[in-house]
Design a protein around this nucleic acid. Structure first.
Length: 274
DNA sequence: CAATCGTCCTGCGGGC
DNA sequence: TGCCCGCAGGACGATT
């Protein structure tokens, strides 16, 4: 389940490995993941192009090509982007392989197949569902406590659902929404409008803290996540409540509880989170 | 109108 | 033991 810290880790790995490289060949093993354009056009428009700047927006990964087009990935649940220093490496569940002139390769693999790839001309991000309606980046400077307070004012509904809403905040998913709420001592089912200003500040600080810490640890390998080198993240063992059903609260030793909110598994400490 | 549900897909875990 | 059913989940679109 790659969320902001995992996609950021992949981005940094790509900058190191493939920035400035020229694509010699695109091999499409399973065209279903290519949302736009047609597989044939996708291949034709990428071969011979150079990977320039590499950016992340929420959970989307964006590679700028020297043609002015953008190669965009969304990994959803089980997508992986894997680097291989040699050609011919066939990863499991491989869908698309980008082979570079230097003889190295980048593979997109996906077990469950929810992930998507797009190739779009510059400034045509509207071709990608969700990309243009993303909320602010929680680690950017313009996401201040004041702006978070304002954002919450016009919103209703459960706070956990809101944190995971990509149009509200970019890049936060099921894992880090729960971790931030735990650190802030806020029950995931609390109506967002019921938070006191003290709680809003705690949540703001917790969100930024947990995302920053998770990036430092190169992400959490829940589900299929690994970095471009195929290495697992180191943050899983640091998770405080996510996936800890039957475990004890790291703060008060009360058993962690699991509930379902909008169809998503949600872990929390019934004592620490009110 | 906001909240929930169905959908896509496949590995895996629980249950018998 | 081994099989099978059903669950998990990001985000869009349909539905209530």
């Amino acid at each position: 389940m790659p969320e902001l810290p995992e996609v950021e880790t992949i981005k940094r790995g790509l900058l190191e490995r493939v920035k400035g490289k020229k694509v010699k060949k695109v091999s499409i093993k399973n065209p279903k993941c290519i949302s736009f354009p047609s597989p044939g056009e996708f291949k034709e428009r990428i071969e011979g192009r150079v990977f320039r700047e590499i950016n992340r927006k929420g959970k989307y990964l964006i590679i700028e090509l020297d043609s002015g087009e953008n190669l965009v990935f969304h990994l959803k649940l089980t997508g992986r982007i894997l680097y291989s220093p040699e050609e011919g490496k066939e990863f499991e569940y491989v869908r698309v392989i980008f082979a570079f002139e230097e003889g190295d390769e980048l593979s997109f693999t996906d077990i469950r197949g929810f992930g998507s790839i797009w190739l779009i001309p510059d400034k045509e991000f509207d071709k990608i569902p969700g990309l243009e309606s993303l909320g602010p980046e929680p680690l950017e400077e313009d996401f201040t406590l004041e702006s978070f307070q304002k954002m919450l004012k016009s919103k209703r509904g459960k706070i956990k659902v809101l944190l995971m809403d990509q149009t509200f905040l970019a890049g936060v998913g099921n894992i880090y929404a729960q971790e931030a709420l735990f650190l802030a001592g806020i029950h995931p089912e609390r109506p967002s409008s019921s938070l006191t200003s003290k709680e809003v500040k705690k949540l703001y600080d917790s969100l930024r803290f947990v995302l920053t810490e998770a990036i430092q640890y190169r992400g959490s390998s829940v589900d299929a996540y690994v970095d471009v080198e195929g290495r697992k993240g180191n943050y899983e063992e640091k998770l405080r409540v996510y996936g800890k059903e039957g475990g004890l609260c790291p703060s008060c030793s009360t058993p962690i509880r699991k509930i379902t909110i909008s169809g998503r598994g949600t872990y929390f400490c019934p004592r620490c989170q009110k």
